[in-house]
Design a protein around this nucleic acid. Structure first.
Lengths: 237, 237
DNA sequence: ATAGGTTTGTGTCTATAGAACACATTGGGT
DNA sequence: ACCCAATGTGTTCTATAGACACAAACCTAT
């Protein structure tokens, strides 16, 4: 059996005689999370495949022959949002034979967190929309499964690493942070326990400024320590 | 920029005009762990590439055009070991441009745990060897990095799921289990705390049998509850 | 200015888990 | 009969998670 199939060496060297082994396309799909109106959102694009008319899909593209896999995901992010200095993490690779109706495509999923109101953010195309994650029931291809997988990964990571810092303005109240965590986790959290837990992480520094434009007692503003963000970035690689 | 490149749809549909996008080969690499002589081992094969003469590499193969990615890893495992009803988990996908000297290959890594003394185990080739993980310093390609990544994943999972059950005979003493954990983690563990922790998991049932052929007080034998294994398997999918 | 509304900021209690640590018991070997 | 080596077991200390309540601060409306 196996003798009939080339191993990596022969397949790569004798490309011409084994073209069928290069019939698999390689792509990346980016699950780009944002946060707005106390909702976790994800950036989607209208699918242009007939099979999926009316459905949305994640942002993805084929990996170029001379491009690292990770670089491809950064490129997709950059092309679609204009952002490039952003945390991006590989999550899982999806490789079912029939996941793409037009051909065999193996796709590696990444997730990322960007600030919807970042002034650098430059959505390049009017078919792009931020969708509340909660309301998404169906997506093109297997993208709903990819979204779910990435959301689970995000949920696992937010208590370990300060990955969410991109979703908030530079200065924020602890309540805003808690609302963000609740939106991501889909649960409500005890305020006192949440503050204790966050304090233990030593991610934040408290500022001498108060919230403004609130109709109640204003809370102190906080920001992420750059130190915490660097450590978190290095741990990810 | 982007307009010069096909999106997934056009690339997949108009294959003939975009052959360069199918120049990436897709493979799987299996990190197959075993356990023998109180050492964690991994199944390696002598690399047949000149660039890596004398080095060993993981077991991998190209993914076939009509084969799911996961199925490819099961196939590699089956072809190399004869085993098929084994836990296998995707870990990470490695896609650096130059990771393979003979061409562009994106490879998805899986790890697995098999019993070296399983009677069904049938190593198909004499270039295959079980190597103690501890002693491995260098492998072909980026396989050392893949091994390290999979080992980290294994270490994270053993306290959460009873994945190690394949590495032990059906009946085993708690000490044997502890030695296995120590071999995987590369640390020594407190015997009393270890036993408490394992007891909390409720993975094991205690048998009315004692160890034999030991030169000291024999310990009670235990086995994994089939229930625990099923739950663990379902969580993985 | 005063009172009412809403949110901030804080601390205790309980339960559970992890780490450190010691001693009597059992069976085999000599 | 004694020694050896590993089994089997429990307490203390510390840290973390979850449940829970009350006073103080600021805004607003009267």
């Amino acid at each position: 059996m196996r003798a009939n199939h080339p191993n990596l060496k022969t397949a790569a060297v004798e490309k011409s005689s084994h073209l069928e082994y290069f019939n698999i396309a390689v792509s990346v799909d980016c699950v780009i999370f944002g946060y707005e109106d106390k909702q976790l959102k994800v950036l989607l694009i209208k699918s242009d495949l007939e099979e999926f008319s009316g459905l949305f899909s994640l942002l993805g593209d084929l990996v170029r022959p001379d491009e690292d896999l990770d670089a491809a995901s950064y490129r997709v992010l950059k092309e679609r949002t204009g952002l490039d200095d952003v945390f991006l993490q590989q999550v899982h690779t999806f490789g079912a034979v029939n996941r793409h109706p037009s051909g065999r495509v193996v796709s590696t999923a990444y997730y990322s967190l960007v600030n919807i109101h970042n002034h650098k953010l430059n959505i390049d195309c009017h078919d792009l929309h931020w969708h509340p994650v909660q309301t998404i029931k169906k997506l093109a291809f297997d993208h709903k499964q990819i979204l779910d997988t990435c959301l689970n990964m995000l949920r696992e990571q937010i208590m370990e690493h300060p990955v969410v810092h991109n979703l908030l303005p530079e200065k924020f109240s602890l309540r805003a942070l808690q609302e963000l965590y609740e939106a991501i986790l889909g649960t409500s959290l005890d305020r006192r326990n949440f503050r204790k837990k966050i304090a233990l992480k030593s991610w934040l520094s408290e500022l001498d400024e108060l919230e403004e434009d609130v109709t109640h007692r204003p809370g102190k503003l906080h920001k992420f320590k750059t130190k915490a963000l660097k450590i978190s970035a290095s741990k990810k690689n």
